[in-house]
């Protein structure tokens, strides 16, 4: 059974330990601006919402890539960017309707969550279990999947 990140905004306190863990794992420094998971704070409502790629089946980013730089990791199901192949054209960044693949101007490549090869640093770092890494059919990703389906332009559902 593949696992997925499960996010429960109700448990998030907005501490950003996840962002630090993610950025350290990927960039070698504590640098929330480079994190692939972002916590959105809604101050007026007292809400904190961690948000990252759901590794959606539609894989908009992968489909949009003109040079085959994004592929599926067979072990984790993650859609993974190959730095060697990415030319930095950024088409994926506008194609992903979730905004979860982004351009890093320092490297000239795009970055996205790759599930840390099956051991996501954000989930490990989360002190409140707002982010957990659990069996995919437990994650309740239906809400996001519903959004994905709505964005579908008709061609993807059955291919």
């Amino acid at each position: 059974m593949q696992k997925s990140l499960h996010i429960d905004p109700g448990k998030c306190t907005g501490c950003l330990q996840c962002e630090m863990a993610c950025s350290y794992d990927n960039e070698g420094a504590f640098n929330p601006s480079k994190s692939r998971i972002k916590v959105f704070a809604f101050h007026d409502e007292g809400r904190f919402v961690p948000y990252t790629c759901t590794q959606c089946d539609e894989a908009w980013c992968m489909q949009a890539c003109p040079v085959d730089a994004i592929s599926v990791d067979a072990a984790t199901g993650a859609k993974v960017v190959s730095d060697a192949r990415c030319v930095g054209c950024k088409v994926c960044t506008i194609a992903c309707p979730f905004g979860t693949i982004n351009y890093n101007a320092d490297t000239g490549k795009v970055v996205k969550c790759d599930l840390c090869e099956g051991d996501p640093a954000c989930a490990t770092a989360c002190p409140t279990d707002a982010i957990t890494f659990i069996d995919a059919n437990w994650t309740g990703l239906e809400r996001m999947r519903a959004w994905a389906a709505k964005t579908d332009s008709g061609a993807q559902a059955s291919a």
Binding site: P66, I94, S153, G154, A155, S158, A159
Partner: peptide, 30 residues
């Protein structure tokens, strides 16, 4: 690029006899 990919896939499915109506592409550029 995204439209090309969607077109390609939609056309292929219809060519193969799978009825798929295309909802239209959103023009976007970066």
């Amino acid at each position: 690029q995204p439209t090309a990919v969607e077109h390609g896939r939609t056309a292929a499915m219809n060519m193969a006899g799978i009825d798929v109506a295309y909802q239209g592409s959103l023009i976007m550029n970066v």
